[in-house]
């Protein structure tokens, strides 16, 4: 097996959060000169995975599970607390996020944002938006810049006459194309797709997904595809990572993970997909309870404890490790 493109090893991000104190307590602390106690929010906790060249890896999980923090770590907008981020052999994690904008490696990781409208500067035309990374990272200008922007518009199916328009003059699908054109402009090795079709109508979604798949083949990129639409993940991804409260709880090839989920959380996620067919609705799993707090979690308790329908005493005494199963799969549950 050749070396993977992206290699994430034991990556962690912990945010300090102030603990709640009553007013008298705060006064007493400050009189006594005590520092306020600090808790740690474990947003991403000991996450390891790889993405091969030309591979599409899906990342699914509920909001608050640490998906967006993980994405910000991988695209180097945020510095990790711990762990490594290697891209094609170079150690990206060693470069500070604050310096990364000016680093040559910036062009290698790009991203398509969730809300195409929000991710476009309202005062930039489509051509300005697509040209921005080319100007900064490839030092293009003048006719060369214009030619490249037009080429990108053609590649993404954006009519050239729309290049002079502002975001508010474009439809949702057109804005999505501008966002994609901007992201592939500097020929990244890894493209992160953060729910690229969440705001689009189904008919437009199909076109955009097919465009993304075509571009991947044409340009030889790898994708990290973040989504909560599991139907779309199933269609687009080779492999899937399921995240819950900062940890990867299950991973495996899309084909087998969707037909035979091992982790109870994955089963619940799949059960929640709306089903038109009443036959398939039988025996579905609904999650009760409340997610555990990500602040100073007890290392001995399984993160899913409290919502898990099949938890036992053991789950509170020993947190399950992510263990390998056959067929490239891994799961972190005692009972899988």
């Amino acid at each position: 097996m050749t070396a993977p493109l992206l290699d994430i090893g034991e990556l962690a991000k912990r945010f300090p959060v102030g603990r709640k104190r009553s007013l008298p307590q705060r006064i007493a602390d400050s009189v006594a000169g005590r520092k306020p106690p600090v808790s740690l929010l474990h947003a991403v906790d000991d996450v390891s995975f790889t993405i091969g060249r030309g591979e599409t890896v899906g990342l699914v999980g509920e909001s608050g599970c640490g998906k967006s923090t993980l994405v910000r770590l991988v695209n180097r907008l945020l510095d990790p607390t711990d762990g490594i981020i290697r891209l094609g052999g170079s150690d990206l994690g060693a470069i500070r996020a604050a310096d990364f904008a000016g680093h040559p490696a910036r062009a290698r990781v790009q991203m398509v944002f969730q809300d195409a409208g929000d991710s476009l500067n309202p005062r930039y035309t489509a051509a300005d938006a697509i040209g921005d990374p080319l100007r900064r990272l490839k030092r293009l200008g003048g006719a060369a810049l214009r030619a490249r922007v037009e080429e990108l518009a053609d590649m993404t199916g954006l009519p050239r006459e729309l290049l002079s328009r502002f975001p508010h003059q474009l439809s949702g699908g057109q804005k999505a194309r501008v966002g994609i054109a901007r992201a592939i402009a500097v020929q990244p090795d890894l493209l992160i797709l953060d729910e690229p079709t969440a705001a689009l109508d189904v008919s437009v979604q199909v076109v955009i997904l097919q465009l993304l798949q075509r571009l991947k083949a044409e340009l030889g990129m790898s994708y990290l595809f973040v989504s909560h639409d599991l139907n779309v993940v199933r269609l687009l991804c080779d492999r899937v990572l399921v995240m819950y409260l900062g940890k990867i709880v299950e991973s495996g090839p899309a084909a087998t993970l969707f037909t035979d989920p091992k982790h109870p959380y994955t089963r619940a996620l799949l059960s929640a997909i709306p089903q038109a067919d009443p036959v398939r609705r039988a025996g579905r799993l609904r999650l009760g309870g409340e997610p555990r707090s990500p602040i100073d979690p007890d290392p001995k308790v399984c993160r899913f404890y409290g919502r898990c329908p099949s938890s036992t005493e053991r789950c509170t005494q020993e947190a399950p490790e992510l263990r390998r199963l056959e067929g490239e799969r891994a799961v972190s549950c005692h009972f899988a």
Binding site: V202, Q205, V206, L209, D229, L235, A276
Partner: peptide
């Protein structure tokens, strides 16, 4: 409606919805 849409638009909408199909090429835009 799911068993047999009669309006061409509804049929198209159903064909664009990810769900049953196994490949992206199986989906059709409108």
């Amino acid at each position: 409606l799911f068993a047999g849409a009669r309006h061409p638009y509804t049929a198209r909408l159903l064909a664009a919805t990810p769900g049953e199909t196994d490949s992206l090429q199986g989906l059709q835009s409108i």
